[in-house]
């Protein structure tokens, strides 16, 4: 019966999620992009760094679906490979931020006192640094690579999550149902996991989607500054920033439109899915 109940709650969750058409669309688009980016590379005619002298700044054609860039590399191949990098950086760095920020924020809000002082002041310190300069500094120490960029963006993102969940938990811990949980003898552990976390998760989901988007953009800026993904490897960011000159912008839209659209669609989809998840996790949302 317990299993059945879990199952029916999961079905209800799916039903609520499916009510939000935008979220479903976003989810489908994200799955498609992920599949494309993961499966496609071995089947591409050109690799991301392969130069075809004939495709030098060429417009889209049958051999180069999205044309060639200013050194003759296939834009479509670079778009697919770049997507791998962007999604990897966005998802993993956010995961790292959440992993550090959520526990710290909960501890600070739940135990207050010295924990609150240390953790929250530390987060202020992190937030007060101009992040892009700090990232540049750290990346130059550890050497530019996808992994370093991901880890650095991830570690620097924790205060966002810590502060957000700190505020939420602070208000939840004063609720009667927490006192009720204490009164029926719940342990601290289960109070945190069964009573506080489920009620504090909604704003975090939204923040996660924003952060994934922000991390993808941050990686793009870093690539532009030469500290991110190193050419000839591609990322959506460095593709965009390679297309900086006015002639490319006006005359050769195939070099910057595809990565720009890919970035936009991905980030939008992530945000839609986040909204849908928040509503679906709230039992008060009606299933009709």
């Amino acid at each position: 019966m317990n299993n059945n109940r879990k199952k029916s709650m999961f079905i209800n969750f799916i039903k609520r999620f499916c009510k939000n058409k935008l979220a479903v669309a976003g989810f489908i688009v994200l799955v498609l992009i992920s599949l494309l980016v993961i499966i496609l590379p071995p089947f591409l005619t050109y690799s991301e760094s392969e130069i075809d002298p004939l495709a030098f700044s060429s417009p889209p054609s049958s051999t180069h679906l999205l044309g060639g860039d200013d050194v003759g590399r296939d834009v479509f191949s670079r778009l697919v490979y770049g997507g791998r990098v962007s999604l990897f950086v966005g998802l993993l760095s956010t995961f790292i931020s959440v992993l550090i920020g959520i526990p710290l924020g909960i501890i600070a809000a739940f135990y207050r006192g010295i924990f609150e002082s240390i953790i929250m002041r530390l987060s202020d310190v992190f937030l007060s640094f101009p992040s892009i300069i700090l990232i540049l500094f750290l990346v130059s120490i550890f050497g530019p690579s996808i992994i370093t960029v991901t880890v650095v963006i991830g570690v620097l993102g924790w205060p966002l999550f810590a502060r957000l969940i700190f505020g939420t938990v602070l208000s939840i811990r004063e609720k009667d149902y927490i006192e009720g949980a204490v009164a029926i003898g719940e342990t601290v552990r289960s109070i945190i996991f069964k009573y506080i976390l489920p009620n504090a998760i909604a704003p975090i989901l939204i923040q996660i989607t924003f952060r994934i988007a922000a991390a993808i953009v941050l990686e793009s800026s870093l690539s532009f500054l030469g500290m991110g993904v190193q050419p000839p490897a591609a990322s959506w960011g460095n593709m965009l920033y390679n297309a900086q000159s006015i002639t490319i912008l006006t005359d050769k839209p195939w070099m910057w439109l595809p990565p720009g659209i890919a970035l936009l669609v991905t980030i939008l989809s992530i945000n839609f899915v986040g909204n849908g998840l928040r509503d679906a996790l709230d039992p008060k949302t009606k299933i009709s």
Binding site: D176, G185, P198, N199
Partner: peptide, 23 residues
């Protein structure tokens, strides 16, 4: 904790004393 097996409490606001995410 063992004492709480014998002593229980009912709160004023039933809307606030039940966890909204639990059945």
């Amino acid at each position: 904790r063992m004492m709480r097996k014998d002593l229980q409490i009912i709160f004023q606001d039933p809307g606030a004393s039940l966890n909204p995410r639990m059945t």
